[in-house]
Write a protein that binds this DNA or RNA. Structure first.
Lengths: 144, 144
DNA sequence: GACAAAGTTTAGCATAGGCTAACTTATATG
DNA sequence: CATATAAGTTAGCCTATGCTAAACTTTGTC
């Protein structure tokens, strides 16, 4: 391989970014669920499977299965055929996610994008924003 | 259910955001791969399985498997035991991703975050930024 | 040209997140 | 208060993305 040169020490550093993205992804769904459950509880007093399914745009059975996972990792508590509750841990994650989500959305609006786009993009972006970037966004909001 | 009120027409609209995020995710990996393959080809003349695996931080076998999928959807071309090439379609996607990636990264830097954070966060964010938001970021860069 | 090292592929496994269809439980109303 | 409808659950399937270990090519070197 004549054209092969060094890999550079950057390879490992580079891969860290992708590893973080992959880690984000597995947390992402959990965050979306607890955030939505928190909203449902606040808005209407309780969170039901069906509401979560409808809002997420997935089948009921999918929600049930995912809730099982969230129970095993201690974010959610639920009796069969009953409404969904959050554990202390779950509330913590939900509040965190909501704060982050709101900030990103406000930031996008301040940047000049439409409400619609801010809502949609913030949903995707919120999970990939570090504390440092969040802080920079907050600073921008104060300035502008 | 005494406390159940209307679901609101927002449910379907809301779910659209999550559907987009899910769709983004399945495209995301493809974009990461073609972007990285394009970089490897430009930087060192060819893209090898091992390099992709190392940079992404995954096992070799994982790359092989994913490349199969990318071949079936027409982004990548490869002979067994040979280097990886991009199809015209693949190059289009790679260039698109690279443009988007670079813009997001530059934007984050302009916003005041560190190089390190800009690099990492842009990797996660680039896949979730709409054209409208990208344009707003570009505008911000011109102004600042 | 033989052979060791490096790179690639295959096989087989696990987890996560989707789905539909069939079934069970809760509840709201006649 | 019986029962139809709505809600939740289970079972079984699929795809995507990871992994390790073992097998197979390619290639560089002696």
């Amino acid at each position: 391989m004549a054209l092969k040169s060094k890999k550079g020490p950057s390879a490992k550093i580079r891969s860290a970014a992708f590893k973080r993205v992959r880690a984000d992804h597995s947390a992402e769904l959990a965050e979306d669920y607890v955030e939505m459950i928190a909203d449902l509880i606040d808005d209407r007093g309780e969170a039901r499977c069906t509401d979560v399914a409808m809002r997420l745009g997935v089948a009921n059975a999918t929600v049930v299965k995912t809730l099982k996972r969230l129970q095993t990792i201690g974010l959610v508590a639920q009796e069969p055929y009953r409404a969904i509750f959050l554990t202390t841990e779950g509330w913590k994650m939900a509040d965190d996610a909501r704060r982050r989500h709101a900030l990103v959305e406000k930031f996008l609006l301040a940047l000049g994008v439409s409400q619609e786009t801010a809502r949609i993009d913030s949903e995707g972006i919120e999970h990939h924003v570090s504390v440092e970037t969040l802080r920079a966004m907050a600073k921008f909001l104060v300035r502008s």
